[in-house]
Design a binder for these strands. Structure first.
Lengths: 129, 129
DNA sequence: TAGCTGTATTATCTTATCTAGTACACTTAT
DNA sequence: ATAAGTGTACTAGATAAGATAATACAGCTA
């Protein structure tokens, strides 16, 4: 369900955040679904409970989950809501990247070609699922 | 010539690397042009010489500059060479970002529209230089 | 020779990340 | 009521990356 790359330069708690967001955005986790408890997930991933707690706290701050003392942690954002937020973030990244591409004089056609190729490849990969 | 954002989460030595690469790619610094000395640049930017040395060492490892003991450090890569390398890096970033955009179901048209808008805006900005 | 260069070394400081252990308040099921 | 599970808070320590500080050495050049 959740995979951690311990060799990555990205902190573990950030990987957990990204991972859970992805589970929500892909529909695996739905609103009000219960997340694994802090201690349980810590044991599964063989990491310290404090690290899980840090990830959950940040997810709660962002409104992705909510936590109830004694009850557990639950999904607090719908697929659509989170998807919209993340789409906006990605499009901002795209704009920044496009600026760099322009300044390095990469032709607009070439940018389109890369996007086109990725989209086609992704479509193909979906068929072979 | 070189600006450092001390509040950035990006390490200073990485900012220096990016900054010098940009000066080469934009044609301000040309092949065999001499760079400021380690101590001189350290004084200008009010940072430790070791930090400059770290940046220069990495730039030399990448072939962007070369250093001669007792002489100084010089640009070792032509505008075209470095531009090609950086274009390739950016296109790889674009491919990765496109994969995320596809997975978040952002329509291809919308991706194109953002790129288009940035390119047009950049062209306009150039006129008003 | 004096004063620049690059380069190397050692030590110290700070910060972020992660671990470890403990404690407390709350909920739920028995 | 009790036990076991939840979230939450706190302190302490380990580790690594980044940056600073001071010093030293080798090579070049005026």
């Amino acid at each position: 369900m959740i995979l951690i790359d311990y060799k990555s330069r990205k902190p573990i708690y950030e990987q957990i955040i990204d991972n859970i967001k992805h589970l929500v955005v892909s529909g695996v986790l739905q609103r009000d679904d219960q997340l694994p408890s802090v201690r349980q997930l810590a044991q599964e991933l063989a990491i310290n409970p404090n690290t899980i707690q840090k990830a959950y706290a940040e997810l709660e701050r962002q409104g992705v989950i909510y936590s109830l003392k004694g009850r557990g942690s639950f999904v607090g954002s719908s697929l659509q809501e989170l998807r919209t937020v993340q789409q906006k973030e990605l499009l901002e990244q795209l704009a920044a990247l496009s600026t760099d591409l322009y300044r390095l004089q990469v032709p607009q056609d070439e940018v389109y070609a890369v996007v086109q190729q990725v989209y086609e490849q992704q479509k193909e990969d979906e068929i072979h699922d």
